[in-house]
């Protein structure tokens, strides 16, 4: 099984950098950007399996970014990152196809667990597609 490629999207640089550092220590293939626009731009040129997406961001907010991601990269799984106050948004995100949500501040293991879960779902679907393509040939 290929390793999961993670993308973190959060406008708070300190939070983002700490998170990146901690994840890299655990040998997670992860990258970080600080806005929805940057996330979409990143996806144009880099593959990603799971996106951890902050719901509250200046510019494109989480929901808008999610909608754009689902439109252009339907198979990429998204986990909404939310505070207590924006729980509603996270749920809205899930109704729009986000895989799950995480409450800030979150436990690192919890995050990785959910991300792996999302990655598994994506991998299963992709393998299914590959099997179908193979059947075609």
């Amino acid at each position: 099984m290929a390793t999961m490629k993670l993308l973190l999207v959060d406008d708070e640089a300190d939070f983002l950098n700490t998170l990146l550092k901690r994840m890299k220590r655990r040998d997670v293939d992860v990258a970080g950007v600080n806005s929805g626009e940057a996330a979409l731009e990143w996806l144009e040129t880099h593959p990603a399996d799971v996106i951890i997406l902050d719901v509250r961001m200046p510019g494109m907010d989480g929901i808008e970014t999610l909608r754009a991601i689902k439109k252009h990269h339907p198979l990429v799984e998204v986990i909404m990152l939310t505070g207590h106050a924006s729980m509603e948004v996270a749920i809205e995100g899930m109704e729009m196809g986000a895989f799950d949500y995480l409450m800030k501040p979150m436990d690192m293991d919890d995050l990785l667990y959910k991300a792996e879960d999302a990655f598994k779902k994506k991998t299963i679907h992709e393998n299914k597609i590959q099997r179908r393509v193979k059947n075609l040939v």
Binding site: K70, P74, L75, G97, H125, I129, R132, V133, L136
Partner: peptide
């Protein structure tokens, strides 16, 4: 049209 169906799966269809 199987190719279209697979295209559909890439767009998020569950299966064909």
């Amino acid at each position: 049209t199987v190719e279209s169906a697979i295209e559909g799966m890439k767009l998020g269809a569950f299966d064909y």
